[in-house]
């Protein structure tokens, strides 16, 4: 555990909690892509099946349980409790265009052709693109609430910090996981455009709105 890994995890946790609190406090999930949230729930579910097979640390187990619990709570708020506020018309990204290729790729390129390992690989690939429905929704509506941009920033920062974590681990532990690294780079790159807007607009007190 190094500082990049820890701050990455905490950034991820912050993102998840920001989103939950935003929906809970405003009693609304307007502007939030339910599809991205379902994908994240699927990501955690398929990745953390090792909760049943191996124990790594109390920290690891607790964080996994919190991530999974929050992911399902978010999906529940969007599709059940505050369903009336869900903006389904703008959440029109076709998720099968992500899930099907990602499923195929995880069967083809993995560390080990076993069910758990393929599901882990699937979750890594899927996570790298799971935010696309959310970014698509923002590009469609042309704007995002400031709190939503904080959520996205923390979520993007998390994977960027993981990249530094992997550099650290490569130098000091000789450890690297090519699947995680390549997917992590892809994931981080997808946020670059958003990072630029966040720094140039949101941090200067302006609302994030895209030119028409």
């Amino acid at each position: 555990m190094n500082i990049f890994r820890l701050t990455g995890d905490l950034s991820h946790l912050a993102a998840i909690i920001i989103l939950l609190l935003k929906i809970w406090k405003s009693r609304s999930c307007a502007g939030i892509s339910g599809k991205s949230q379902i994908l994240f729930a699927l990501v955690f579910t398929t990745r953390y099946l090792d909760l049943f097979t191996s124990f790594i640390s109390l920290y690891n187990t607790c964080m996994k349980l919190i991530y999974i619990g929050c992911a399902y709570a978010t999906v529940y708020l969007i599709y059940a409790k505050f369903r009336a506020t869900y903006d389904g018309n703008h959440d029109s990204f076709r998720v099968e265009f992500l899930v099907v290729p990602v499923g195929g790729l995880s069967v083809l390129i993995n560390h080990d052709f076993s069910p758990l390992e393929i599901l882990w690989t699937f979750s890594i690939y899927l996570e790298s693109v799971a935010i696309l429905p959310q970014l698509f929704m923002i590009s469609k509506t042309g704007e995002a609430e400031t709190i939503t941009t904080h959520y996205l920033f923390c979520l993007g920062l998390y994977r960027a910090l993981y990249l530094f974590n992997w550099i650290w681990r490569f130098y000091f532990e000789g450890f690297f996981d090519m699947i995680a690294i390549v997917a992590g780079v892809v994931q981080t790159v997808l946020y670059c455009d958003f990072f630029y807007l966040y720094v140039t607009k949101v941090l200067k007190g302006k609302k994030l709105s895209l030119p028409a």
Binding site: I56, S57, N60, M63, Y162, D177
Partner: peptide, 10 residues
């Protein structure tokens, strides 16, 4: 068969 891979990251 090989030892199952352990993914210690989140």
């Amino acid at each position: 068969s090989q030892e199952p891979l352990r993914h210690d990251e989140l």
